[in-house]
Write a protein that binds this DNA or RNA. Structure first.
Length: 367
DNA sequence: AAAACGTGGCA
DNA sequence: TTGCCAAGTTT
């Protein structure tokens, strides 16, 4: 393998600077063991799953809620999936929560509650990929692993001034990462965490604070004063906008029609309000509720729209309200009625929380 | 291998 | 307001 220019400096010096900085400035995080203490594998795993593609502030309250509700992997394994999804609501990427539960069951029932101690075996578990497997090995077991997350990619892209855009540059970045992690030994747990803290506090995506960076000496981008240019990323497609309908169907007894989404759809397994299939490309298809089937006592009224952005499209949902005599309702298997007062405890994903908010404010207005 | 998969914060 | 971004995995 051809050596990159970043190999030319001494890896030991680089690691030493990073670890010295970490010793002084490391963050206290709910899932992180205090200095000198061992991390709890369950906490490491849970936090790593939660942190995928999101931020520390977004995760904190969820982590605390989960560790309180489910103090160990067996509690989590035994909980109904429905409860786990309810408590995950709002964190997004809901397949993560379903995989979290599947994984907990395997660890609890097959491994007797102990996480496997190799990357190979960890990667076989649902929801654990390259990054998470290496993070658990390093952080929970203090064993050597090349841990590469978005922070490490950004830091290396700047250190080595990688011109190749992500994600194509992942392979070369991984190679450089391997040299950074080389022979880390007893500090196997600290090094990846130092890089993540550095990425969070110093080598930030925007306006990196190179003046206080412990490894700026090694950084090519800093030396060229073009650190803001890295990491170079592939140009993204513009997001299309989809339009759909959602229904706030109230019975004459003041209950609301809700449903559970099937797991092969967006927001899979989550509670929802009935509507058209906005998550399908084909916007023509009628979804869970053809409103006319319910014979509302008067024409449904359009009360407004809700806008929401997903990773690959924008959504505008027209929100309709209808009052339906209870005898006209034929509930599907995944549907039920719920009192308005209980609707906040349901665990709607954010999209439907917005719809509920709009519907309730319209409620207050006209009735 | 490229696309799918959520959300909230910030410039 | 719009677009970008954050501790990736799965298919």
């Amino acid at each position: 393998m051809k050596k990159s220019h970043v190999f030319e400096w001494n890896t030991k010096d680089f690691q030493k600077e990073l670890l010295k900085w970490y010793d002084k400035y490391r963050r206290e995080l709910p899932w992180r063991a205090p200095k000198g203490r061992k991390a709890h594998p369950y906490h490491v795993w849970l936090s790593e799953i939660m942190l995928q593609q999101t931020t520390v502030p977004a995760v904190k309250s969820y982590f605390e809620k989960f560790t309180e509700l489910y103090p160990d992997i067996h509690h989590l394994a035994q909980a109904p999936e429905e409860d786990i999804l309810k408590h995950w609501a709002g964190l997004g990427y809901y397949a993560r929560a379903r995989n979290l539960h599947k994984c907990a069951k395997i660890i609890s029932e097959v491994y007797g509650g102990n996480f496997p101690k190799t990357e190979i075996d960890l990667k076989k578990l649902p929801g654990i990929g390259d990054y998470t497997a290496s993070a658990i090995i390093a952080i929970a077991f203090n064993k050597e692993a090349v841990v590469v997350d978005g922070n490490v990619e950004r830091i290396i892209a700047r250190l080595a001034r990688i011109r190749e855009p992500l994600p194509k540059s992942k392979a070369i970045i991984k190679t450089i990462a391997a040299s950074i992690y080389e022979d880390i030994g007893k500090k196997a747990s600290d090094l990846p965490q130092s890089l993540m803290d550095l990425g969070s506090m110093v080598c930030t995506p925007k306006s990196p604070k190179c003046n206080i960076c412990p490894i700026s000496y090694f950084c090519e981008a800093k030396n060229h004063k073009d650190q803001e240019k890295y990491p170079v990323k592939a140009i993204k497609e513009a997001k299309p906008t989809r339009i759909g309908d959602v229904y706030w169907i109230e019975t004459t007894k003041g209950e609301i029609l809700i449903e559970k989404r099937s797991t092969n759809r967006m927001l899979g397994g989550m509670m929802a309000l009935p509507g058209t299939d906005w998550d399908k490309n084909n916007a023509e298809s009628m979804g869970s509720s053809d409103i006319s089937l319910f014979k509302p006592d008067k024409k449904p009224s359009l009360i407004g729209e809700v806008r929401h952005s997903f990773t690959h499209f924008h959504l505008i949902l027209n929100v309709h309200k209808a009052r339906v005599p209870i005898k006209n309702l034929i509930l599907k298997e995944n549907q039920r009625l719920i009192c308005i007062k209980d609707i906040d405890e349901l665990g709607f994903p954010s999209l439907y929380k917005k719809v509920v908010k709009l519907a309730i404010s319209a409620e207050d207005k006209d009735e």
